[in-house]
Design a protein around this nucleic acid. Sequence first.
DNA 1: GTTGTTAAAATGTCTGACATTTAATAAGCT
DNA 2: AGCTTATTAAATGTCAGACATTTTAACAAC
Lengths: 238, 238
Amino acid sequence: MTLDTLPAHHGGAEHLARLLARALLTGHWQPGDVFPKELDIGKHFAVSRNQVRNALASLTAAGLIERTAGRGTLVREMGEWHLLDPLMSEWMTGLVNLDPQLVRAIYAFRFSAEPTVARLAAQAATGDDITQLEAAFEGMRCSAGNPDARAQHIEFDVAFHDVIYQATHNLVWRQMGHLLRPSIMALVYRSQHDIKTLDDSLTRHRHVLDAIKAGDVNAADNAAREVLRRTAIDLGIV
Amino acid sequence: MTLDTLPAHHGGAEHLARLLARALLTGHWQPGDVFPKELDIGKHFAVSRNQVRNALASLTAAGLIERTAGRGTLVREMGEWHLLDPLMSEWMTGLVNLDPQLVRAIYAFRFSAEPTVARLAAQAATGDDITQLEAAFEGMRCSAGNPDARAQHIEFDVAFHDVIYQATHNLVWRQMGHLLRPSIMALVYRSQHDIKTLDDSLTRHRHVLDAIKAGDVNAADNAAREVLRRTAIDLGIV
DNA sequence: GTTGTTAAAATGTCTGACATTTAATAAGCT
DNA sequence: AGCTTATTAAATGTCAGACATTTTAACAAC
């Protein structure tokens, strides 16, 4: 694959990294392929070699590519990607063409992990956590069904789940909240939104909120499962 | 804190990054402190500014520091660290002075997550996974109690748990196997190893192996809990 | 045909100069 | 005095060019 199909580029090395990363994430290159060389990239986007090297350094850190002196740059396979790197989440957000295998993997992870996360949150949530959770829920409720507020609704949805991860007050679990945004956006892009399913989804979210508020770990576990079951239906993963 | 207390440095930017990272991980600087400036670091370790910048770029990517033009380099707090970055795991392995709060956080994560991981492994493990798991267990058994084979024993222990993460065949869970090495090494350094506890630990590991082999998800869940309970005792977290 | 040498091509490194951003300082006005 | 505005200093960011190193491939010699 060549560079010609990629969109134009205005701005620094970060922007270039994002551009190239998103191309990799959507499968513009196959694992094992040789990636374009520094000078070609620099020529194509009219940027200095420095910028290219900085961008490629980010991609390397994220496990997307592998560089060796003399040989060149190779594209790594999906299993090597550092999915939990915050940069990856940033690059993935808003990608409609995200590999379905990846979307399913992230969902499978959430499905297995979030009941436990909800349990921990029910044990450890502070008053402040509850307040944030309620605010996020209220935001979801108000923006539900309004086509003009879809972006807002997504953000409140992400915030709701992220607060739960944060409420575990565990340094490791907290890192994983990053996966939520790309995952939830992928969901929204792939599912239809009639009033009935939205209302059902809201109800299930409220059950999670109530359980965490009550400190009922078993109820939180179950309620989180119900939310994800709803999600699975919407995604067509059954 | 100054650079003077740090060990000497031979080799490339990666080595320098590791050196500085380990200093940060063991609390040589407090969050919010200003980190030494590029030129000072370069002068102190007799390396080019390039090497310093590359090293600091790694630390930035890992969330350990934060750099802004004009202001300088600031040390970030533990909550901002990217604990799931593979580089972090590499930097943490073998650190005896690792912050106890961090060790406890990682352990608490494992305690909440690994039963679920074991469940998934019991569902998804292939014949090859089982073979690897048995090999790791056999390695643990043979090297148990032999003071000359302590390093080996650690590696087999890490491998045992890592295989379980791998056996979930989930791209996200697989990433988290990286946390095991630093976590297990921290455990070994902090606990005493009489024959009795070692034997008990081995037995509990075998129960996990058997449950996964049998595809019994509930047994795997319980057995994983038992292994971690043993670990908790050894760590003094009760 | 195998082996050793050479040449090309890619990434990695060094250096010095310059740009940009930020914070502190000093000047100048009301 | 107090506030605003230039100036300066110091740090990181960027650039350009030369050079080093590593790998692959071509080619020659035996």
